[in-house]
């Protein structure tokens, strides 16, 4: 079963806000000068910000913010965020892989930016709604 796709807009302002909230002030997430110096095309989103947005999609699908039992991803491609009002978009979809006898649902999640997968092995296990 496929779950309904969710789209998240990501702008530079979102990255600054996430940096403050998470305490991750690595300049590759806010300075084009530093990002390009280390060989990136420009400022990129925190991998953990992408993972947080995908986690939001998972809890929204689950219908409860405390339903996630297991959640893991591999970061495969950076999400480049241009310095304009639109920023970029991350699209998240998921497929139900398995529903266990003890009420756990295992999801295989796909996150893409401009058509490219930005995560691999993205999996979440959620408890059925109470």
């Amino acid at each position: 079963m496929e779950l309904p796709a969710k789209t998240f807009q990501v702008t530079r302002a979102d990255l600054i806000r996430y940096a403050g909230a998470s305490g991750d002030f690595n300049p590759i997430h806010w300075s084009d000068r530093v990002a390009t110096k280390v060989g990136l095309p420009g400022v990129i989103a925190h991998g953990m910000f992408t993972m947080a947005l995908v986690g939001r999609a998972v809890t929204e699908w689950a219908g409860s913010p405390d339903a996630v039992v297991e959640y893991g991803v591999r970061f495969t491609r950076p999400v480049v965020v241009p310095d304009d009002d639109q920023g970029t978009e991350i699209e998240v979809t998921a497929r139900v892989r398995e529903v266990t006898e003890d009420g756990l649902t295992r999801l295989e999640v796909t996150a893409t930016c401009l058509g490219d997968k930005v995560l691999s092995q993205a999996r979440a296990t959620i408890r059925s709604a109470r």
Partner: peptide
């Protein structure tokens, strides 16, 4: 950062 995974006992 290559991979990240969480296994929750509770939130």
């Amino acid at each position: 950062h290559g991979d990240q995974r969480f296994s929750y006992t509770r939130p």
